[in-house]
């Protein structure tokens, strides 16, 4: 036994799973987004507001416009996470692609999409990640690209590993890729995580389960798409992203300097 033991203030998986079930049982209507107040995810306890947010209806709000990043900030090659070092990273090579849309189904064009992830062993190239899994000198796990005129993005990377964390005893995050996406309005901003289909860790993970509606959780899971797999090279996953919130009410997004 190398890890912590339940009972000294560190909850067991059984306790967390029971709390998740209770929270899901208390959901009276399907909600699109996770609850900010979701105690099974212990870090949320002191970091969610108690007061309801104040609605802003102002059509001229600055938040209804958006920056366009990327013309200057994205270099060719930033979208291929397997070619950022002299050698190739270890792991299962994959491509992930999809479209960024608003809720009306309109493509979000020319906007920045950023990703970050653990390596194939489940370790982040981040100084504060202490998981005793190997770093991969050929993998940083950071990528960016701009959407095309159909709102499409595409990354080549390796499939990340699951990794342990200290929310509770024997806590493991399902494999995921973090996504950061801009829309046509700052109010559409989204940071989220993409998961892989069929991961057995889903029911144990309080971060995914903070989305209490099963249909909404399913929207965080990419689909394996055999047509995207390339012979003797990589496996393909498809994942579309739909941004919430009001689209821009003013003419197109503004270019930043």
């Amino acid at each position: 036994m190398t890890g912590p033991v339940a009972g000294w203030g560190i909850p067991s998986q059984e306790r967390i799973t029971a709390e998740i079930a209770a929270a899901h049982g208390s959901a009276v209507k399907p909600e699109h987004h996770p609850r900010r107040d979701f105690a099974p995810y212990r870090s949320s306890v002191l970091r969610h507001p108690h007061r309801a947010p104040v609605p802003v209806g102002d059509p001229d709000a600055a938040e209804r416009t958006a920056p366009v990043l990327g013309t200057r900030d994205v270099r060719a090659g930033d979208a291929d996470l397997t070619r950022q070092h002299p050698g190739e990273p270890l792991g299962e090579r994959i491509t992930v692609t999809g479209r960024v849309l608003d809720r009306a189904g309109r493509p979000v064009r020319g906007q920045l999409v950023e990703v970050w992830q653990a390596n194939a062993a489940g370790r982040y190239a981040h100084e504060r990640d202490r998981h005793p899994a190997p770093l991969d000198p050929n993998f940083t796990g950071v990528g960016r690209c701009r959407t095309d005129d159909e709102g499409r993005y595409a990354f080549t990377t390796i499939r990340p590993g699951a990794y342990p964390w200290r929310n509770h005893v024997n806590a493991w995050r399902p494999a995921h890729i973090h996504f950061s996406v801009f829309g046509t309005a700052f109010a559409q901003r989204l940071v989220t995580q993409m998961y892989f289909p069929g991961d057995p860790l889903f029911p144990y993970d309080p971060i995914l389960q903070a989305v209490t509606d099963p249909a909404a959780r399913a929207r965080l899971v990419a689909a394996y798409d055999h047509a995207l797999s390339r012979p003797e090279w990589s496996l393909g996953y498809r994942w579309d992203i739909v941004l919430d919130g009001p689209a821009a009410t003013l003419p197109g997004p503004e270019e930043t300097s």
């Binding site: 699109h32 987004h33 996770p34 970050w116 929207r219």
Partner: peptide, 19 residues
């Protein structure tokens, strides 16, 4: 009919080398 949005997820602790 509006498309259902992609849910948010936390930025997590390890964004420092990315964002």
């Amino acid at each position: 009919t509006l498309l259902p949005p992609t849910p948010s997820q936390t930025v997590g602790p390890f964004f420092g080398h990315a964002l």
